[in-house]
Computed example of a mutant assay.
Amino acid sequence: MDTSTQSNNEDAPHPYVEQGRLLFARDVTFMRSAVSLATLPDPGPPEICFAGRSNVGKSSLINALTNVNGLARASNTPGRTRELNYFNMDDRIWLVDLPGYGYARASKVDIAKWTELTRAFLRGRAQLRRVFVLIDSRHGLKESDFELMDMLDEAAVTYQLVMTKADKIKPPAVVKAVAKAQSQIKKRPAAFPVIIPTSSVKKTGLDILQGEIASLALPDHRV
């Protein structure tokens, strides 16, 4: 796996921060919601995905990254996202919002349907560059997160952890949460080694994440 796009030194600027700023300053538009493989858009530019447990702050992070309020539908009802939502970023990269997982009140039928759709999508999209797995900084990795990472390891799809809601805990606790997660993924074959702590409210880490996404839009990128 390519680890050249970012250093483990948190004080070092991401080499693609400026490219990320320029990318996210351009138009980002909703494309479509896919409820099956047949309704996915035809292959186009590189794709990146956001995945995470229900209520991890996925919609809020997408809205904060793009500076478009309401682009991704945030809801107080866990498990609302039941399809793959596609967003077009200046025709350079497509952002995909995957259904939330780990919500116990969802029916077993719905859970099985979402899981199978996600699994089939991950295995079948050749242009998929990376899955950003969102983890609540306050709670760390849960069983459902490990299940998703098992699926990604099996499919050989590169994924990177993004810690959300970092403003909800003290800075030393954020460092501790990142270090713990780092140790938990270090032997996973498809895990990108750098974890990005973020806050949609304070805008913390968003420039780093934007830079990472911009690097994945480059035609010569190697996963």
Rank of each mutant, 00 (worst) to 15 (best):
L117P: 05
T115S: 15
A104F: 14
M151F: 02
W94L: 11
V131A: 08
E116R: 14
T118R: 04
K170H: 13
I169K: 03
F121G: 02
P171T: 03
Y159E: 01
H139Q: 15
Q160L: 06
K180P: 05
V96M: 06
K113S: 12
A120D: 15
L122I: 05
L141R: 01
V178L: 12
D90C: 10
V96Q: 01
Y159V: 11
N88K: 12
D153N: 09
N88Y: 09
G124D: 13
S144A: 15
M149Y: 00
R138Q: 04
D153G: 00
I93Y: 08
L152P: 00
S144K: 10
A166Y: 06
L148W: 11
D90S: 15
A173I: 10
D97N: 08
A106S: 13
L161E: 14
E147M: 10
D110C: 08
L134F: 00
V131G: 00
M149N: 03
I135W: 01
D97F: 07
R105H: 14
V109M: 11
A156C: 11
A126W: 04
K180V: 14
H139R: 05
L117D: 03
M89P: 09
F132A: 09
Y101Q: 12
P172S: 06
D97T: 02
V133K: 09
D167N: 07
L161Q: 01
